[in-house]
């Protein structure tokens, strides 16, 4: 557990000392939503229909934007090799890095997303549900994303392949999360979709670290 906390702390300290890296995905998230609103110029009631999807697409893209940083610098300066030849379970180190990535990007999106949802015209209650979906869904993006990054980190220009690999896997999260909010607005029960999101969260957090650790071993060699 000590090693988990140490790596988590290390990644958070590094992110704080690299503020641009910290702010970039957040700014991107806010800007995309604001631009959507400016570009659509739709009637408020139409915008409300789109709001959950807009917020979620922006969250998804901002996660994608920041994913590459998860292992890239560790790969370049040799820290990743040291992690792999340490006797600590690589999957535990990976889990610490996934959680750190979520705190740096996903948590901020989760906190700001509902405010932007309100700006798009969502009611207070719908905003609460949006917050809940972001809280459950954004860690899934970090976890699934880590597999894609681990597979492409050894490539010189892995960006395009990363998007191709990861975006299709993000789709279920996007569909279920935005669907949950629209279902709630329409007045239907949402317990099933929330349960599905939680299942995705548990599944990705428990399986992704192993897959990522295996992929990292391949990338490092």
């Amino acid at each position: 557990m000590n090693v988990f906390i140490t790596i988590l702390k290390r990644d958070l300290i590094l992110a704080i000392r690299h503020r641009a890296e910290l702010l970039n995905p957040m700014l991107f998230f806010v800007l995309v939503i604001v631009l959507f609103q400016l570009g659509l110029r739709a009637k408020p009631e139409v915008l409300v229909d789109f709001a959950p999807a807009i917020v979620w697409i922006a969250a998804l893209l901002s996660a994608l934007l920041s994913l590459d940083h998860m292992f890239r610098s560790d790969m370049e300066d040799g820290a990743l090799e040291q992690m792999i030849i340490s006797t600590q379970a690589t999957s535990l180190l990976v889990l610490a890095k996934i959680i750190a990535h979520w705190i740096i990007t996903g948590l901020a999106v989760t906190l700001v997303g509902p405010l932007l949802g309100m700006m798009l015209g969502l009611s207070f209650d719908a905003t609460k549900i949006l917050f809940l979906t972001l809280l459950i869904g954004t860690p899934v993006l970090s976890a699934i994303g880590s597999i894609g990054v681990a597979l492409t980190v050894g490539l010189r220009r892995g960006g395009v392949i990363l998007s191709l690999l990861v975006l299709p896997l993000f789709v279920p999260v996007l569909i279920f999360a935005s669907q949950t909010v629209t279902t709630y607005i329409a007045g239907y029960p949402i317990a099933a979709s929330i349960s599905f999101l939680i299942a995705l969260l548990v599944l990705s957090l428990s399986l992704a670290p192993w897959a990522t650790a295996a992929a990292l071993r391949v990338s490092v060699s």
């Binding site: 290390r10 590094l14 690299h18 610098s73 300066d77 040799g78 090799e81 040291q82």
Partner: peptide, 12 residues
């Protein structure tokens, strides 16, 4: 192992 890349984080 001390490799070519030394595993040292610049910002720590």
């Amino acid at each position: 192992y001390v490799g070519h890349t030394d595993g040292i984080k610049q910002d720590l």
